[in-house]
């Protein structure tokens, strides 16, 4: 499994895809850096610097870099040695904690829906959480730009025939398998591959994709209680359920 390159019908597979992901990340980083630069500038004019917004922007940039580098490391070095029993609600709770400040900064209400009892799944906790944080940050930043009535995102889990699904959900009907598939195709050629979801390069979504790919998992379009979103299907561990 070391350095494994997974072949999938709708994902770019050659070495240009890693270069493209790096380009996506670099383009995406311009946003928080510009926020910092302009907030600092207006702070000098008004003598009231918004330090908390500057801090959130800096942390958003750091998170994106950290998640990207983790994905690259996992892809290069393999992840099997770090598999552990993981509680999906606990991962969602930790993800919501990490996203709370960004959501507040963008005026987005983040709700945690982790009702229901699931057994643990065998997963790489750090990788799974990084993928959800990366995905969540991308969706939070895009939500006000979608012209949605309600600025609300749900971090939720539910059972499906395929396993336990953990994901992020909102009211944007544009989130679909087709949009995700087209976005992955356009990632190699477009500055804004997910035009129905994000006004940026959508790097957060593609970094989540890369992290999940390195763990032999996939990001899917998914529904949760009438909401639209993106989720990850995790297989429950039968053995751990018996313990």
């Amino acid at each position: 499994m070391r350095g494994k390159v997974k072949v999938s019908a709708d994902k770019p597979t050659n070495h240009t895809s890693s270069a493209r992901l790096l380009l996506n990340v670099a383009e995406e980083l311009k946003v928080p850096f510009l926020q910092i630069a302009r907030k600092a500038e207006i702070g000098q004019i008004t003598a009231k610097p918004e330090l908390s917004t500057i801090q959130v922007a800096a942390e958003t940039a750091l998170n994106l870099l950290e998640n990207y580098t983790l994905g690259v490391r996992m892809s290069l070095e393999g992840y099997e040695t770090n598999l552990e029993p993981v509680s999906v609600p606990a991962v969602l709770y930790d993800t919501s904690t990490r996203l709370r400040a960004l959501a507040k900064s963008y005026g987005v209400s983040l709700e945690l829906s982790i009702a229901g009892r699931y057994g643990p799944v065998m997963a790489n906790k750090a990788g799974l959480e990084a993928a959800l944080v990366s995905l969540g940050a991308a969706l939070i930043e895009a939500l006000p730009a979608q012209g949605a009535g309600q600025l609300k995102l749900h971090l939720a889990s539910h059972r499906s025939p395929a396993g336990v699904v953990a994901g992020l959900y909102g009211q944007n009907k544009q989130i679909s398998s087709e949009v995700l598939k087209n976005g992955r195709k356009l990632q190699n050629s477009s500055r804004q591959p997910l035009t129905n979801i994000s006004h940026t390069s959508g790097a957060g979504i593609f970094v989540a994709d890369a992290l999940l790919d390195a763990m032999d998992l996939n990001l899917h379009s998914s529904r949760h209680q009438g909401l639209y979103g993106l989720g990850i299907v995790l297989k429950p561990s039968r053995q751990l359920e018996l313990v």
Binding site: V31, K39, I42, S105, P144, A145
Partner: peptide, 11 residues
């Protein structure tokens, strides 16, 4: 489209 930048430019 970016809420933080919009607030800053508007200010």
């Amino acid at each position: 489209p970016d809420r933080i930048l919009a607030e800053t430019y508007a200010q």
